[in-house]
C-alpha cells in the first residue's frame, strides 16, 4: 500500500511551500523518521521525515519549486515493483482555509458524512445528545406542562388535570390548549368512575313498614335514602352543610334537601333549589329502570334501583372530587345503612 508524501502546511496562511532539496532519490530504501526532503516557508526551513519504512517512489516535484500545500510530491511504497506506485497521485484534500470553510459552511453535507462514519448511531452526531432531556410520560404526581401553557391556562381558569384525565401526552404544551378548552367547555362531562353494590332489601322494607305502622307515620323510602346518604357524606367530608339533589321516577323529578340527616325522619322537608349540592340521588326504585342518565350537575351521584329482591346502589364520582378509596368507603357506608336501617336509628 503506497503512502502519499504531501507538501506540509508549516505556516498559518501558507499557500505554497518551496521544495528546497530531495534528501533521498527515487528508489532509495527509507526508514520511518529518516529525512526525505527539505522544505522552506517564509518562516523557516525544515526537513520532512518518512512516515513509514519503504521505498521512495513517484517523485513528482522538482527541487527549487513552489508546491501548493497539500499536494502529493512522492509516494512511499512497500516494494519497488508495487503496482500502487504507478497510481497517479490524486489531488489530495488540503487544509487550505477556503476549501475547509466552504465544507463547514454547507455543513449538511459534513453532517451526512458523519452519519456514514458513525453508521451505528441513529443521530447525526454524538456531540450533545447526552444533554437532551426527553420528558418521561407520567400519569401521576405533578402535571408536566410548559410555563407558557400554565400561564395561559391559569388566565382562562382551565384545569390541566382534564388533559391528563383525557389521556393527553405530557408535558402539555401550548399546542394542547385547544383540546384543554374543549375538555373544559363540556359542562356535562360524563362521570368517569363508577362502583356498584348489591344489597338485600328485606330489612329495609320491614323497617319502613314497622316504623310507619307503629308510629302511624308516612315515611317514604325517599326520606330514608336522603337521610342515610347525607349522614355518610357528612362522615366523609366533615362539612357544615350537605345538600342533596334528589331525583326520582322515570321523569327524574327534582327535589332538594339541605342536611336531611340532622332531622327526625318525619320532620325532613324539601328545601329550595338554591342550595349547594353535595351529591345527587337518583331514585329509580319506583320504576323498572336500573340506570338512567340525565343532566349531570354534581361530582357524586347515587343511583338506587330494584334488582329482584335487592337494591342496586350505584355510585358515580369525579376523581378530582374524591379518590377511589374514599368513594368506596362512601358506597360501603351508604349500603350498610340501607341494608340494616334499624342499626342506624339506635
Amino acid at each position: 500500500m503506497a503512502h502519499e508524501i504531501i507538501m506540509p502546511a508549516l505556516g498559518m496562511a501558507q499557500e505554497t511551500g518551496r521544495l528546497v532539496a530531495w534528501l533521498k532519490s527515487e528508489g532509495d530504501a527509507v526508514k520511518k523518521g529518516e529525512p526525505l526532503m527539505e522544505v522552506e516557508t517564509d518562516k523557516s526551513t525544515m526537513e520532512v521525515e518518512a512516515p513509514k519504512d519503504g521505498f521512495l517512489a513517484n517523485i513528482s516535484a522538482a527541487e527549487n519549486t513552489d508546491i501548493p500545500v497539500g499536494e502529493v510530491v512522492a509516494l512511499i511504497v512497500e516494494n519497488l515493483d508495487d503496482e500502487s506506485s504507478k497510481i497517479q497521485p490524486i489531488s489530495s484534500k488540503t487544509i487550505k482555509n477556503n476549501e475547509e470553510k466552504e465544507q463547514i459552511g454547507s455543513n449538511i453535507e459534513t453532517a451526512s458524512n458523519k452519519e456514514e462514519i458513525f453508521s451505528d448511531s441513529s443521530t447525526p452526531s454524538i456531540s450533545s445528545d447526552k444533554e437532551i432531556i426527553k420528558p418521561s410520560a407520567t400519569t401521576e404526581g405533578k402535571i408536566l406542562a410548559s410555563p407558557k401553557l400554565r400561564s395561559l391556562a391559569a388566565k382562562e381558569q382551565l384545569s390541566l388535570i382534564k388533559l391528563r384525565q383525557a389521556g393527553h401526552k405530557e408535558p402539555f404544551k401550548v399546542a394542547d390548549l385547544p383540546a384543554l378548552r374543549q375538555l373544559s367547555s363540556q359542562s356535562n362531562m360524563p362521570l368517569r368512575n363508577n362502583a356498584t353494590s348489591l344489597i338485600n332489601k328485606s330489612s329495609f322494607m320491614i323497617f319502613l313498614l314497622e316504623i310507619n305502622s307503629a308510629a302511624k307515620l308516612e315515611i317514604s323510602s325517599e326520606l330514608v335514602f336522603v337521610s342515610f346518604i347525607s349522614s355518610s357524606l357528612r362522615l366523609l367530608f366533615n362539612e357544615e352543610n350537605i345538600g342533596i339533589h334528589y331525583k326520582s321516577g322515570s321523569d327524574l323529578q327534582s327535589i332538594f334537601y339541605q342536611d336531611p340527616d340532622k332531622y327526625q325522619l318525619e320532620n325532613i322537608t324539601p328545601h329550595d333549589a338554591d342550595i349547594q349540592i353535595t351529591a345527587e340521588v337518583c331514585d329509580l326504585t319506583s320504576t323498572d329502570l336500573i340506570q338512567l342518565s340525565g343532566e349531570i350537575n354534581s361530582d357524586i351521584i347515587f343511583t338506587i334501583s330494584n334488582f329482584s329482591e335487592q337494591f342496586l346502589i350505584s355510585l358515580d364520582w369525579q376523581p378530582n372530587r374524591i379518590s377511589q378509596e374514599n368513594a368506596l368507603v362512601l358506597l360501603r357506608d351508604v349500603s350498610s345503612r340501607i341494608k340494616s336501617p334499624l342499626k342506624q336509628l339506635l
Binding site: 447525526p124 437532551i132 420528558p135
Partner: peptide
C-alpha cells in the same frame, strides 16, 4: 455545532420531543 444539529434540535423542540 453544525447547521444540521441546529435544524434537528429545532425540529425536536417544536415537535414536543424535548
Amino acid at each position: 455545532p453544525t447547521a444540521q444539529q441546529i435544524h434537528d434540535r429545532a425540529v425536536m423542540v417544536l415537535k414536543g420531543e424535548i
